[in-house]
């Protein structure tokens, strides 16, 4: 079997080589467009990107429209995957403007990061960012991890904050993305720090999306990791438990910019972030999820309402 596997690998290598050679012949095709590196100088458009997350896309669209209003040319490259995909692109300087979240980005850049208040995390983030990237002043709006339960479950055990989970007397199932198991606020920490009785951890890979919410509502799980700006929390009358000990990193919206973003553009982005409140973010998300509006419509309405365009 080992030789078979070796043969397969060697063969794959040959095949890949052949494909690359062929693809090379056919270059100049429409697949190669995009990823402008900005070497063309000041005239090149700013590349604004977003995660494959509808809420992040709305923020990126707001940035784009605001920059266009200020006379900048913008190249939108939205929905480019999760952090593991776009972070290398960002570090390589292929993206000029990216909406991020201070805590999650810090943890991705430095797995040993300490956490703390929003100001502390923002300061650490600026340290951790590689050269050529800058974190602008964060917004009030945040979209952070939370431990969330149903209203019924909260009432039953009188739950208000994470520590009160110790009141729970039955072993509970926890749901969230698989990396939860490795996080400092994960199920193990809950068990060790607060004595929460945990029976099982169920990995649901939709980042607290509808599958996780449904599992919680169906009582397949009793405790879920859901983002605080998720309109599903309100729609399903869920309770996001308070976190007085700060086990979760604060995740305020922050703009990561490259050196290509000049002072004028930074000022525009600062103004947008200054206007973006926590409630705003939830209602922007709700317009996307509940009213099924597209990002450009939502962004334009919000910018108009706030006198930014």
């Amino acid at each position: 079997m080992f030789t078979a596997a070796k043969g397969r690998l060697a063969w794959s290598a040959v095949a890949v080589g052949a494909v690359v050679a062929l693809a090379g012949c056919a270059s100049g095709d429409p697949l190669d467009e995009g990823t402008s590196t900005g070497e063309e100088g000041a005239a090149a458009p700013l590349v604004v990107s977003s995660q494959a997350y509808y809420s992040n896309e709305i923020i990126a669209e707001i940035y784009s429209q605001a920059l266009e209003e200020g006379g900048y040319e913008v190249d939108r490259e939205f929905q480019i995957g999760q952090r593991e995909v776009y972070l290398p692109e960002l570090e390589a300087g292929n993206i000029d403007v990216f909406p991020e979240y201070i805590g999650s980005l810090l943890q991705a850049l430095d797995s040993e990061a300490a956490g703390g208040t929003a100001d502390e995390v923002y300061a650490d983030l600026q340290e951790a960012l590689p050269g050529g990237l800058t974190a602008l002043e964060p917004a009030d709006a945040s979209d952070q991890n939370s431990w969330t339960v149903t209203r019924e479950f909260a009432d039953k055990y009188d739950l208000t904050d994470v520590a009160s989970l110790a009141n729970v007397t039955e072993p509970i199932s926890v749901g969230g993305n698989s990396e939860l198991a490795t996080r400092p606020y994960g199920p193990e920490a809950l068990e060790a720090q607060y004595g929460v009785p945990i029976a099982e951890v169920k990995s649901i890979e939709d980042s607290g999306g509808p599958l996780t919410v449904k599992a919680l509502v169906d009582n397949d799980i009793q405790l879920a990791n859901i983002y605080t700006a998720d309109p599903n929390i309100k729609a399903n009358d869920l309770v996001a438990l308070d976190d007085p000990d700060g086990i979760f990193f604060p995740d305020n919206v922050v703009t990561i910019v490259s050196d290509k973003v000049d002072a004028g553009a930074q000022k525009i982005l600062d103004e947008v972030n200054a206007a973006l409140s926590a409630d705003d973010l939830v209602s922007l998300n709700s317009e996307s999820v509940n009213d099924q509006k597209s990002a450009d419509v939502i962004a334009e309405a919000w910018l108009t309402e706030n006198g930014l365009i």
Binding site: Q82, E84, G175, N177, S178, E179, A181, T182, K202, S203, I204, E205, D206, L211, A215
Partner: peptide, 17 residues
């Protein structure tokens, strides 16, 4: 593993994330 079904995909998703 995407929706808590288990299996060898669990390693792939955890590694990915």
């Amino acid at each position: 593993a995407y929706i808590s079904g288990g299996g060898l995909g669990s390693f792939i998703f955890l590694g990915l994330r």
